[in-house]
Nucleic acid binder design. Structure first.
Lengths: 245, 245
DNA sequence: AAACAATAAATTGTCTGACAATTAAACAAA
DNA sequence: TTTGTTTAATTGTCAGACAATTTATTGTTT
């Protein structure tokens, strides 16, 4: 008989074990730096083989929830999620999400500039020399003749990240990095003419100046121009594609 | 001799294999819904055992990059990342990040309300009945006498998510969900007196009214009050703790 | 006693081979 | 045609072994 509708076991064992441990971490029953039982012990406790436990642990490691170390005193430890790890995870997720779901370019641009505009007042109030230095340096690179379109985009990303960092709020920096970097693949599809680059560098200059002078209102105006110009470039690219096709 | 510095093998084999496949997906060499070779084939190609391949695949599955299916015609398929999956990943990451790195509460509140304020003009312009209905409904629940603090917070989260959704931009909704939900554990630590709840519900009411009337400026003012009030509540909680301790 | 080298032990990483579970497709029967 | 049955491909799990890594211990030399 053994009806035994204990728990719905639709998911595999390794998934269930990973979920159990993940929940324990999120609920604080396992704290940072705490060592989990060894793989053999876990296998015994859950009543599964070591291979199954390992697959579960690999899932958690992929999410930066745990970290493993060999040798005696080794094992799996609850990992303190760093900004860097979280940043990478967010960028990966956002990039794939946007890359695989043909989101309208307009939506991405709108989201990015809306959020960036929100950071501007804080950035203007709190900017430090180190942020302005990065911004100026990137503008200089954007004016150089021999950079590829890809390098130009990468420099653009660094410029805007410096701007976001100037707001001096780690949570904002984290969130902004997601929207800014996930847009890079889309921006990479644009071919920048020399006059486009010059225009963008000029706008960046104006933006840096406004932030430097702590004039949030002026900075906002420049940012809006930058947003419009980005949309124009993308529209131009679309037209070019349409005629050649 | 066999110096063989082929690739730096500091990382384990399963990690390297996972990275190789992940890169192939991110670079578009593997496209959505494409089937990967079977585990046995992958094991042969990479020159490792099936167990190692499986650990690599589990890592990718944990990041929602692939999906596996049994049976003939089964295998591992490149997964189209859905908004829901990405949302869950972002919330998990943000929540852990904030929970494990004692970020100042002020920073989190500032980030959340700054970003939310940025969404307000869009929300006021585009709000539809469905968003307002959700907001009104949640306000009603917040006024009910017998809801726990936790339920009150959950309702608050739903209210603000509806507000973000009203901006009608999926990228914004995605980003906002991250800041809003990751703040919930912090909000849960607050004990809400009846007058606190009444005040918050009143502010929510005013916010909904302003958005309903498409008055972005008015809504912004209310949101700022809400932000200040949240900080006050948190400060009060901190004082209470300090005196009892 | 101190410094250094060899050894042992614990733990993760990988391999091998096997079997169970699932499922689509081919086949057979009513 | 429909309905069951078999078959084969594939993932899921298991058991046991050995390799690699790293710490602690033990022994040896100075």
């Amino acid at each position: 008989m053994s009806i035994a509708y204990d728990g719905i076991n639709k998911e595999g064992l390794s998934t269930q074990i990973a979920d159990a441990i993940r929940t324990a971490i999120m609920e604080g029953r396992l704290v940072v730096e705490q060592r989990l039982p060894s793989e053999n012990e876990l296998a015994e406790r859950f009543g599964v083989s070591r291979a199954t436990v390992r697959e579960a642990l690999k899932r958690l490691a992929a999410q930066n929830l745990i970290r493993t170390q060999r040798g005696p005193t080794g094992g799996a430890f609850v990992n303190r999620l760093t900004w860097s790890e979280a940043h990478d995870a967010l960028v990966t997720t956002s990039t794939l999400l946007i890359g695989m779901n043909d989101i309208p370019f307009e939506d991405v641009v709108e989201a990015r500039f809306t959020l960036e505009a929100a950071c501007l007042p804080l950035a203007a109030a709190r900017r430090e020399d180190k942020h302005l230095e990065v911004m100026r340096q990137e503008i200089a690179q954007q004016r150089m003749k021999d950079v590829s379109d890809e390098d130009f985009c990468a420099s653009d990303v660094r410029f805007h990240r410096a701007l976001a960092d100037a707001a001096d709020n780690p949570v904002l920096s984290f969130q902004m990095a997601g929207v800014i970097e996930s847009m890079q693949p889309l921006m990479n599809m644009i071919t920048y003419r020399m006059r486009d680059r010059t225009r963008i560098a000029a706008l960046h200059d104006a933006l840096a100046d406004a932030v430097d002078a702590k004039k949030a209102r002026a900075a906002l105006k420049v940012l809006n121009e930058l947003s419009s110009y980005t949309l124009e470039l993308m529209a131009a690219r679309r037209n070019a594609r349409a005629t050649t096709a």
